[in-house]
Design a protein around this nucleic acid. Sequence first.
RNA 1: GCGGUCGUCGUCUAGUUGGUUUAGGACACAAGCCUUCCAAGCUUGCGAUCCCGGGUUCGAAUCCCGGCGACCGCACCA
Length: 587
Amino acid sequence: MDNEAKQDKFTAVNELARRRGFFWQSYEIYGGAGGFVTYGPLGARLKQNIEAKLRELFVTKLGILELESAVIAPGKVFEASGHVDHFKEPMVECSQCHKRFRADHLLEEYAKKSCVETEKMSLDEIQQALEKNGITCPDCGGTFKPPQRFLTMFETTIGPYSGAVGYGRPEAAQGIFVEFNRLYAVAREKLPFGVIQIGHALRNEISPRQGLIRLREFTIADLEFFFDPEEPGCCLLKNVENETLRLYLAEERLKCSEKTIDVTVKEAVAKQLIRSEWQAFFMAMAKKLLTEIGVPPEKQRFIEKTQWEKAHYASQSFDQEVYVDRWGWIEVSGHAYRTDFDLSSHMKASGVDMRVYKEYKTPVEKEELVVKPIMAKLGPAFKKEAAKVAELLQKAPADEVAASLEKQGFYMVESYKILPEHVDITKQKTVVRGTRFIPHVVEPSFGCDRLFYVALEYAYGVKDDRVVMSFPRSIAPMQVGVYPLVSKDGLVEKAREVHRLLANEGFMAEFDETGSIGRRYARADEAGVPLGITIDYDTLSDGTVTIRDRDSWRQVRSSLKDLPALLHKYFQGKINFEDLGTLLPSK
RNA sequence: GCGGUCGUCGUCUAGUUGGUUUAGGACACAAGCCUUCCAAGCUUGCGAUCCCGGGUUCGAAUCCCGGCGACCGCACCA
């Protein structure tokens, strides 16, 4: 299978995808536009099924809330979140060789500026700093053109006349943070809770290549999980504690070592390799997801981001990577501990309190001295000033007042001399029942188009020179094919009847009567249809059909009347192919 | 954005020293015949203004310029 023109899987998968309608580049009739794709019938279905997996895993099974928010946001949202600053990178271009560089990186490297410093610099300041330090093109020594900012967010104006700037969201997360107060109320004001949003996001990439791996418009699934930083324990960790994770730690990467370690979730948490229990939990869930869409565990790993690589909001973060044929390890999900960065930022920018109230388990009783002015005495003593004096007294520190009265027999508040008989000093018990705080956030974030791509690549296989897309049955875009063995003697009519039956039972079923039976099986294998139902002469006489397995090409014989129930069980993963009927001898 | 290579039916491609090319083939697809289980065979059909725009020329798929797109390298990827 590899003697001639050994094309890589990326090429093979893309070609198949175009031919069979999984996906292709958008706007082809106008020459195409980089970074945009169209999912065809099989692809749209497959993508929905993958997203359904995410929902099943998080929404159905864990009770994570789902949200759908707008793609366009007012400028303030992404100013507050830090994206406007962080998506706008200062770049300089060499006037001789036209190579482009990140101006801030040059300053950090050659002028020993810190990234905190460069962050704050204006374009003019950057230019001056470059000139002052005599920084020229590292490649050819040429001088730089004036620096410019490249904004990787899509910018627009909201409304026809206003200058109100709006941005296409580069992630779905902010749509969750800005709605936090309502979501928290809907979640019945209980922590921890999580919210997921699966939707389109936009990033105006400088040069999107790599097909589905880097797009300008893509589907992201951001899950924000809110919890109390004082109770960071994960109540679900037990369920996954023996799951192993392959970690590629930052310290190994800094040593330029390729060493990865396999640890159980339990160990990773115990050794503080993963500092948040919830983060560890979601990493285990992410591994489960990838495994379920067909990526073997040994082709997955979690790479810890170094200090430099981490997002502006993250405390510790890992990328889940999958090994692909052409590029090696590529990111499919990110796992960041965002602390309270986002909610704090929006609180500060909007002025809206997003803290949550926590009642103490046992109310804290405090005993403190209280100075109570006795108005009956203050009135005669200070006349018109009495009210003011009382007010001042209440603000004064009670301890000081008490000490002064005791020692010196009086207390001076401004120019007023307070005598012991003017006030009543008592010990008062106050009960503090709770406190307010900003929840912390752990965020797993999946690139759905990348999940889609790795699902395609790992499904791709060649058997007897035929392409077989071995999707896990739970995500296969087409579930069953129904075929008359030959197109005569009433077999076609019977097959149509079976097809209708299955379609009405809720299966994604296709009907195909053209070409030889072998050709139809081959076509179905290429579309990744797990089961083929073939109607033959025995079907007419005894009501049985053959069921063909896409991956092994084995066949079983089964009664038509049992078929719907059997297929339901099969697609729910409760039974295997052999359980569908009696095995026929393979030819 | 820069540099290199490239762009012909749905897919893969022949042709590219400018001229019988109404751009050829294979696979796929469709209709029919045949066919009792893995891309069989036969017949017929559908399908490409040769990526787009401009230029040179009597004549351009072929040469030149610009654009778009793809791949590889650099840079970028929060």
